[in-house]
């Protein structure tokens, strides 16, 4: 199966038919992939017999991590999503990649980055529901020449309580119970996000959200943003000078705010207030 997401195209092969059927359903509204895709992803048994006996899915493809743990067949969709993210994280060179969610309104983009659990996927999905255009919940792609963000609207990976918080409209993947990160469900970005997946937006604000703290905001100096973003980038070191130029430009031109929030509702209110 082939699919294009923003600027990147993928080919996914699987030793089993079920994950491919799930992927086709999840990506039904995406453009078909190119005839020569950027990345190949393979879902294959960890041992030949594990295709049938207690099927165990290894994450493989152009780029692999030796320590990536296999998943049971029931979680093969998650394996595919992780593998696609991995290809981009390790192999993409056409943009500076930030591990961040991004949304856009009136041509200006809000970038939210933070550790796993900071709530960036949930926040991005909530903002999408409120009319923002989702650029992506996992990677923000910074143009190396003009600093704009290229959308990369992959299905939003929602976990545990966030799934119920966002229940309702939209195309959803199957509920994956008992994964290493608990229950996971993928929400396909809305029509606005998918229709705009080739339309770039200039970043206007960087947010470092932190979930589970009393409400607080703090202006972040560019130097701190620089350090945190090099850590949040999977390809900064690989890009060399263009990456350095793109990142220094980003932190110089875009104001950065650290936001602590206790729950989703207060986060939305705080974003409204900061965004102005």
């Amino acid at each position: 199966m082939k699919v294009r997401v923003g600027p990147a195209s993928f080919r996914v092969g699987s030793a089993w038919s079920q994950p491919l059927a799930q992927l086709r359903a999840l990506y039904a509204d995406y453009p078909p992939g190119d005839s020569v895709p950027d990345f190949t992803v393979r879902l294959e048994p960890t041992r030949p017999w594990r295709r049938w006996v207690r099927p165990s899915v290894a994450i493989a493809g152009d780029y692999m991590l030796p320590e990536a743990a296999p998943l049971p067949l029931a979680h093969a969709l998650l394996a595919a999503e992780m593998a696609m993210n991995l290809q981009v994280a390790l192999g993409w060179r056409r943009h500076l990649l930030l591990h961040a969610a991004a949304v856009e309104k009136d041509g200006r983009a809000l970038v939210m980055t933070g550790e796993s659990g900071a709530g960036k996927s949930t926040l991005a999905a909530m903002l999408m529901r409120r009319g923002w255009r989702l650029l992506g919940d996992e990677f923000a792609l910074v143009d190396l020449h003009n600093g704009s963000l290229h959308p990369f609207p992959r299905p939003i990976s929602l976990k545990n309580d966030s799934i119920a918080a966002l229940a309702g409209e939209g195309r959803w993947g199957p509920e994956l119970v008992g994964t290493p990160k608990g229950t996971i469900r993928h929400l396909v970005p809305d029509a606005l996000a998918l229709a705009g997946m080739n339309r770039q937006a200039m970043p206007a604000m960087l947010l470092f959200p932190r979930y589970g703290f009393a409400p607080a905001t703090r202006a972040v100096p560019a130097s701190e943003a620089f350090v945190r973003l090099t850590a949040a980038s999977t390809n900064y070191a690989n890009l060399g000078e263009p990456g350095f130029r793109a990142l220094t430009r980003l932190v110089r031109e875009v104001p950065t705010v650290a936001v602590d929030y206790p729950d989703g509702a207060s986060a939305l209110a705080m974003v409204d207030e900061i965004w102005g």
């Binding site: 701190e224 070191a237 000078e241 350095f244 220094t248």
Partner: peptide, 17 residues
């Protein structure tokens, strides 16, 4: 590139910052 608290220096021969 001077950035408030420090100067970020890209070193071309090594590709390191």
């Amino acid at each position: 590139e001077p950035i408030d608290a420090f100067t970020a220096v890209y070193h071309r021969p090594s590709g390191q910052t």
